[in-house]
Design a binder for these strands. Sequence first.
DNA 1: CCGCTGTAGTGGTCCGACCACCTGGCTGGC
DNA 2: GCCAGCCAGGTGGTCGGACCACTACAGCGG
Lengths: 237, 237
Amino acid sequence: MNETETEPAPQRGTVTQRAIERIKAMIAEGLLEPGARLPTERELAAQLGISRSSMREAIRALTVMGVLEARHGSGIYVTQLQAGDLLENFGVVADLSRGPRLVELLEVRRILESTATALAAARITPEQLAEVERHLAAMNATDDPEEILAHDLAFHREIALAAGNETMAAILEGLSSRTFRARVWRGYQEEGAFARTRREHAAIHRALAARDPEAARAAAAAHVGEVEEWLRAQLGG
Amino acid sequence: MNETETEPAPQRGTVTQRAIERIKAMIAEGLLEPGARLPTERELAAQLGISRSSMREAIRALTVMGVLEARHGSGIYVTQLQAGDLLENFGVVADLSRGPRLVELLEVRRILESTATALAAARITPEQLAEVERHLAAMNATDDPEEILAHDLAFHREIALAAGNETMAAILEGLSSRTFRARVWRGYQEEGAFARTRREHAAIHRALAARDPEAARAAAAAHVGEVEEWLRAQLGG
DNA sequence: CCGCTGTAGTGGTCCGACCACCTGGCTGGC
DNA sequence: GCCAGCCAGGTGGTCGGACCACTACAGCGG
């Protein structure tokens, strides 16, 4: 391979790795706006002087990171680079963590969730509060664990959104991913924790309706803390 | 909208996507222990009945997620699945976020960093405290922005580790990634914020040495909050 | 016994072909 | 003139095979 005669650092790592950095840099520098369409795979490969296979791997990597989006038959596009896009695969952390790692994850969630709930108490709109109440009611109206879980997730998601920080909401979404919750809660709920959970959710809602940030923070921290303590005991014993 | 009425599970998405899920599931179910070596690419491809190219893309995806690690000439291995492994590429979020998103990111960091610093005040060991002091001294002993930045990062990393939650430390690491800090601080530091930063760092250290969690929380929150406010003003004006 | 070397096997890269899908223009009827 | 439907071109998705770069280890020679 030839190089530009004066370049002392032609190749750092693998070809694919370089392609990833190049495209990432292009986006960081603003050469590629969010939503913009990239050249075709074949063209990109030619531009960087690599094979289409390697370019495809680079694109796959950026797709996983949530930076690019490939639409079959249409083209490759830059995502909106919203928090949700970039944190979409954050859930795998929760899905593949085990043992002490799970407790750490719940501790992080407790910190963020309590703060988010406190913020939400101050900022939530009547419409959002109504939505929260809807999920709360639906959660109490059924005994199907699947449905309860779904409304539970939606309940907290709505609160996180009401906090006004989309990034935090996206992170919490990952920390509460469906499979994660299902895994941890399977045992937790079997111990008849339904009643306790309902009480805690009611307390959170009460604090939100009263616009009391401190009460909301405490209620949310206790809510997550309950699960955290249970899980800690599971591991310890 | 509804599907899967007729066929149980013919083919959900693309071939590569299925391969990713399969391998991820194998790890989640414990069939592949952390550090274990996988079959060769060619073998894996044959097992799942797909081409090696597609399998390579799947492996690349899992590599980016921090789940797998490919060693040229040796083989493919499952990572230790530590927080650091899975959150390694979390930094891209910080690197590619702009405008209001950056403020949100700093807000999340402020919440986590203040809590982590408070925890560290209660748990830090003499050795760790000495290390923190070393970085503090090195930071004050030079005027080279690069060096200051490096020790600044190490200063906070040491504190996060002392908090005893590796997952939180890894997330904070991502939220403080080198390029992110460099981007935001370029302007911030140019306004003669060196002195203020040093004062804030000193305050954090003082709280740690005094084992005062509340003071540590306040100092850390103020430290990050300063940058946050500055950035907010930059965007507002 | 140690160190060097050769080699088999691994991931990394490239090529060229074909398939599946989407898009937009064109055709044809109304 | 307008619109539905068809159709061709272009796009990402998949495949198979070949070769390169690197690693690990067995075997040789000192």
